[in-house]
Design a protein around this nucleic acid. Sequence first.
DNA 1: CCAATTTCTTAAACTACATTATTTTTTTAC
DNA 2: GTAAAAAAATAATGTAGTTTAAGAAATTGG
Lengths: 192, 192
Amino acid sequence: MTQDIVLKNIAKHISLDENEIPYFLSILKEKKYPKKSVILKEGEICKTINFVQSGTLRAFYRDSQGKESTIMFAVSDWWITDMSCFINQQPAMLNIETLEESLILHLQKEDLDDLYIKIPKFERFFRIIMQNAYIREQLRVIQNLSLSAEQRYHIFLDKYPQVAKQVTQKQIASYLGITPEFLSMIRANKNK
Amino acid sequence: MTQDIVLKNIAKHISLDENEIPYFLSILKEKKYPKKSVILKEGEICKTINFVQSGTLRAFYRDSQGKESTIMFAVSDWWITDMSCFINQQPAMLNIETLEESLILHLQKEDLDDLYIKIPKFERFFRIIMQNAYIREQLRVIQNLSLSAEQRYHIFLDKYPQVAKQVTQKQIASYLGITPEFLSMIRANKNK
DNA sequence: CCAATTTCTTAAACTACATTATTTTTTTAC
DNA sequence: GTAAAAAAATAATGTAGTTTAAGAAATTGG
């Protein structure tokens, strides 16, 4: 079953009883998206938190002048949403799109709220997910403040080698906060 | 009681029963620190998560050349720690210091782990705390990637006016990721 | 399979911010 | 209250990264 992936993901942090598994699976809605699908568009209410079974997704912010900043990539086994807008059920600041054909499990806000009540272990699960996300973002802030673009690029390659292969340099540049032209220069220097 | 502050903080997200309150308070260790105390030093194991009853704290990263990047400020009613190192009980990457005399409640890792078991509602509480921290850090990443130093400075003033009054410009500059000299220029331009 | 579009590279001119140094102002300590 | 230390301002010079533009390479769609 493809749903093995999400169950293994859950099992990293909590153990579900046999009878809890079908309930949990019943609130997930599986959907297949072709390449370049828009999963969430800025301004829309973000109704779901999303688990990537297969494929690659990108969340990005587009500023008033159209400049894009990639906030995160998500590959198989990752959770992704516009957390702020999902939690508060407000218009999204981010866009989320597929970079290739992807199989996504959607979990609705109201179903998650019920889940916390019916299976409180999920409070623990998402506490750990949020904790890890916080630690990741904070590390990224530290690196953005203290490292050069070149250092950030090499850390990105080391940390997410499989993502680096899937996405364009333009997208990597927008994740690093530099222009594609400057990334191209960094890459050219490397070979010297 | 000064401990009212932490109980009100908890009550924002969960309701404790009468009998749970004394247990929770019993695992908190209150300590008073003079100005410029070091609460956590990089390289040390980070043993506690800390609640600020009164005063102001600063968490910062110091790179190999001694350059400081301020990761967060914490004033009354905030939780602060080096989360990565607290969770994994590994040597700290961050330093935490008081910027004025401060009254801190310390919560030890092992007591927190017990607390999650004895009062599982705290899973919910810290899930929400972590969620908010994640959202905050992600917003900061977006702003670091897409806004100029000047824009970031004005957002900081709007968002944390009381912090802005308590801390030096050098510290604000290191939070924004710029030099104090450049912040001084930004401030001078403002008056034109 | 070819045309069209997108991506990547190169390079010159430019800008936001850093560095260094000096002076002035504010804070701290006895 | 005064000396010493730290913080802030100003200014000249330097640099990491941007902008603009144009050509080469790779991908995509029909």
